[in-house]
């Protein structure tokens, strides 16, 4: 089953973030708690953890993109 990963709300006061970098590539196995990607908010660099066990299928956002809360970021193939 394919699960969608959406941009979480990382800052109480802003909804638009700078997408930093991917720590998992398509085809990589991911476990719950693994860092998927880094995002720069107004105050910090947030490492966002996977909420699923599976295989990263597709990255929907590129490094350097501006992303909004709720945007589709990736898909994970879950067993």
């Amino acid at each position: 089953m394919l699960k969608e990963v959406h941009m979480p709300k990382l800052s109480p006061k802003s909804d638009e973030y700078f997408f930093g970098s991917w720590l998992k590539e398509p085809g990589d196995t991911v476990k719950t708690g693994d860092i998927l990607f880094e995002v720069e908010t107004d105050k910090v660099i947030s490492e966002v953890q996977s909420q699923e066990d599976g295989v990263l299928k597709e990255q929907k956002v590129a490094e350097g993109d501006s992303t909004k809360v709720g945007d589709l970021v990736a898909t994970i193939e879950v067993n």
């Binding site: 979480p8 910090v44 660099i45 947030s46 490492e47 966002v48």
Partner: peptide
């Protein structure tokens, strides 16, 4: 440029 030590981990389920 934010320094690397300004990095925090975010677990959506817990938050």
């Amino acid at each position: 440029t934010k320094p690397q030590w300004l990095k925090v981990t975010y677990d959506q389920t817990k938050v």
